[in-house]
Amino acid sequence: MKHIIDEAKLLIFDLDGTLYEDTDHFDYYCRLMQKRVPEQKQEAFWNTYESMKKGTHPVVIGKVYDIQNDTSVTVDPMTLQVTKVTSFDGQEWPEEKVNQEYAGELVYDFERLIAIGDGWWLPYATAMHFGLKQADTWECYNATKEYMVTDQFQLTKTPGLKKALERLKEEKQLVLLTNSEKVDVKRLLNELELDGIFHALYTEGQKPLKTRNMMEAILDEFQVHPHEAVSIGDNFINEIAPALLLGLKAVYIQPNRIEVEHENLHIVPTLTNAL
């Protein structure tokens, strides 16, 4: 496994769920939004979110949530073709209806079609289903970010990660590509004691919509061929599939058993298993 990293000239890391694996802030985010729905719906709101986390709901990490149709959409991440659609309550759409509604490649737009790539999006999808406005979710998101800088919130540092990255930095280019805002990225890196580790930070990357464009720009800036670079992340839609399509190698951080195979793909339960 480690020879994939050893042979690379450029490593492109994700941040959330990759350099740290804490999830308590997702629950905090959801609780804030739960308070904004009518009291008689709050229990159902939380139970829906919990079932998403457990993987027993149609909307789970790895799917796409269609706000307009209130559906869970299964997409082949390598072709971007829709293969299955399920209503929020679990009713599968007939193939004819799927082909009519979702013809061609699916384009994530952050407005209607939301790639559920990590824990941030499960509370969001829950909120959209229960009728909250995007302004509500944004206010709660910002409040969660504020909470994450207080003494009440503590990030768990991955044992040995800093030393491993420092060792890799001596021979390779290390890049961070994340959807998070720059101020949040710098704060999180400081708290994780990883500030100064990366040769470049690419923030607000709009993954997965612009992942391929961002990766192409990074390869060009560092003058590296695709096969000499590795994308490392916990989000198959955001970081892994686009990298494989460009010819990069990829390390997918996934603690659960998953049926995905590709000659340039390596699956590990945690980042420490890769480094």
Rank of each mutant, 00 (worst) to 15 (best):
D70L: 14
D89F: 12
T74I: 04
S87D: 15
P77M: 07
G55E: 07
E92V: 15
V59A: 03
W46Y: 14
K41P: 02
K53P: 01
A103F: 07
M78D: 00
V98W: 03
S72P: 09
V85T: 09
N47L: 13
G62S: 10
T83L: 03
Y102N: 05
T74K: 02
T83K: 10
E50W: 05
A103S: 14
Q91C: 05
E96L: 11
P94V: 10
V85H: 01
Q42Y: 11
W46I: 14
G90N: 12
K54F: 01
V60Y: 06
W93V: 01
P58E: 07
E50V: 15
D89I: 09
Y65T: 01
T79G: 07
G90W: 13
K54M: 09
W46M: 13
K54C: 05
A44Q: 14
T56H: 10
P77H: 05
K97Y: 06
G62L: 07
P77Q: 04
W46S: 06
E92S: 14
S51V: 01
T48S: 08
E50S: 10
V98C: 10
Y102L: 06
T56K: 15
Q68G: 06
N99I: 03
K84N: 11
Q42G: 04
I61P: 00
G62R: 08
A103L: 08
D66R: 04
K63M: 06
K54N: 12
P94Y: 08
D70G: 06
E101T: 08
K63V: 00
M78Q: 04
D70C: 10
G90I: 11
Q40S: 13
Q40K: 15
K41R: 15
D89P: 01
Q68M: 10
K54R: 15
D66H: 07
K63R: 12
S87V: 11
W93C: 02
D66W: 07
S72F: 09
K53T: 11
G90M: 12
D70S: 13
H57D: 06
A103P: 01
K54P: 02
V82F: 05
Q42K: 14
N99P: 00
E95N: 05
T83W: 03
I67E: 13
Y102G: 06
W93Q: 08
P94C: 02
I67T: 13
D70F: 11
Q68K: 15
V82K: 07
Q68R: 14
I67R: 15
G62K: 07
D70R: 15
Q40H: 15
V85M: 04
N99A: 14
Y49N: 03
Q100F: 12
D76M: 11
K84S: 10
D89C: 06
K53L: 15
V60C: 07
T83I: 09
K54S: 13
N47K: 15
K63T: 06
A44D: 14
I61M: 06
Y49G: 04
G55D: 11
S51T: 14
E50M: 13
V59P: 00
T86E: 12
K53Y: 03
V73L: 03
K97N: 05
E101G: 00
V59G: 00
V59Q: 00
E50C: 09
H57Y: 08
G90K: 12
T48N: 11
S51N: 10
Y49S: 02
T48F: 10
K63Y: 05
T83Y: 05
Q91M: 09
